[in-house]
Write a protein that binds this DNA or RNA. Structure first.
Length: 255
DNA sequence: ATGGCCTGCAACGCAGGA
């Protein structure tokens, strides 16, 4: 089973690239973030024509998540239970016996920002949600844009990023607390190339200069970790004409 | 280089991203 995640930074713009990704990688599940499209405008026809089903939780202009899957998605939940967040950042479903949580964790803007407080609060709510899901499902995967680089090796210049949003201690602690619930960062189960990142800034010509961060992650429960055979970043997609600023991340699990 | 771009919305500049 292949599970993938990709922050597409507008599904409308990136739809051809998403269809190309589906054809090239044939994932069983693809989690999308920053679709930036309302549900009634979601490109269901094109996705279905590609052999996939889709569930979505979107809004106008900002945020928005979706899960594309070859097989039927069951027990769908939009958002975090008991948290009336107007920002559409979470969609959950069971596919092929795996509980899939697609997350778009807030960016935070800067450590001084009100959005940073929202991010930390949001992470607390996600932590509670994962606790409950883990009690119900042993095969659990959380895929998405976490907007947190967990370790020095996930940052092109840790000195430069020290204390900054995406790499501040409270964010890294919150990430560790999620993992400590009983997950593993699937990317680190395997030997990886140095300077492996999933996001590069548009502005700094970041991709060409290797100015990147690893902020898109796939956390797996113990039950899935022991069956995980690979985790990779499809970094070549970032070199595409008119790319998303994020590259897809994918795991293969033997089920 | 204190800089650089991309997207959507609604206008011809802003918010937001990270």
């Amino acid at each position: 089973m292949k599970l993938a995640t990709w922050n597409v930074n507008s599904l409308k713009v990136r739809l051809p690239q998403v269809l190309d990704f589906l054809a090239a990688q044939t994932p069983d599940v693809l989690c999308l973030q920053e679709t930036k499209i309302e549900d009634d405008k979601f490109p269901f026809m094109e996705i279905i024509a590609a052999g996939y089903q889709a569930i979505c939780c979107g809004q106008k202009a900002y945020n928005g998540v979706a899960i594309l899957s070859r097989n039927q998605a069951a027990d769908v939940v939009m958002g975090i239970d008991g948290y009336a967040d107007p920002q559409k950042r979470v969609i959950v479903a069971t596919v092929d016996g795996v509980r899939v949580i697609c997350v778009y964790i807030p960016n935070g803007e800067s450590v001084e920002s009100a959005k940073y407080k929202y991010k930390l609060d949001w992470l607390g709510r996600l932590n509670n949600c994962l606790k409950l899901e883990l009690a119900k499902y042993s095969r659990l995967a959380i895929l998405g844009d976490y907007n947190i680089a967990p370790e020095d090796r996930d940052v092109h210049d840790p000195k430069l990023w020290e204390g900054k949003v995406l790499f501040s201690e409270p964010e890294k602690s919150a990430f560790k607390e999620l993992v400590a619930l009983g997950f593993c960062d699937s990317f680190r189960l395997f030997e990886q190339a140095e300077k492996s990142y999933s996001w590069w800034d548009y502005r700094t010509n970041g991709f060409k200069r290797g100015f990147g961060l690893r902020i898109d992650h796939i956390l797996l429960s113990a039950e899935l970790s022991k069956r995980c055979k690979s985790c990779s970043i499809d970094r070549d997609r970032r070199a595409h004409d008119r790319p998303s600023d994020h590259a897809p991340v994918m795991v293969e699990i033997e089920i």
